[in-house]
Amino acid sequence: MLTLLRDLRRLRRDLHLPRPDRGRSLAIRHVDAGSCNGCEHELTLTASPFYDLARFGLGIVASPRHADVLLVTGAVTSRMRDPLLIAYAAMPEPRRVAALGNCALGRNLLGTPADLVGPVETLLPVDVRISGCPPTPDLIAEAILRLVDDPPSM
């Protein structure tokens, strides 16, 4: 493995490729802020053999303290507002927020106004929007990979 890494580095130097200024991986923390569980079911399958996002350096991490991206699903309910903000505050910078699914984007929200805070955008700066009800695993994969390839400027 070490040999392989050294070879890759030599190859990169020989070909005069630019040195990557950041590792090509992203750690994702998912927060369900009030979804119907559809986005979770599809997000789970992005790790399945058909998509296997781990091979692109993408992984779900257990703590927001380890995360680069906060991936939020669901219309934010009044009871999930505080946990969501606490998770965001716990993340190291630079950090990104991705809103996953139509509810998180505030489209066709269902529920009573007293129980919903509204779309993620009303609480956090959203960098990536993934629409769909729910978005399919390949759409989720594509959107997150774009974040790796072309990170938004700070």
């Binding site: 369900d32 009030g34 309910t77 009871r79 999930m80 269902l110 009573t112 129980d115 919903l116």
Partner: peptide
């Protein structure tokens, strides 16, 4: 109930077809 959206209450007063969405 962290995800309580009040779907049943929100469906009240609407048509039966509309209620299906909730």
């Amino acid at each position: 109930f962290y995800k309580h959206r009040g779907l049943e209450k929100a469906a009240e007063g609407g048509s039966a077809d509309r209620g299906l969405a909730y």
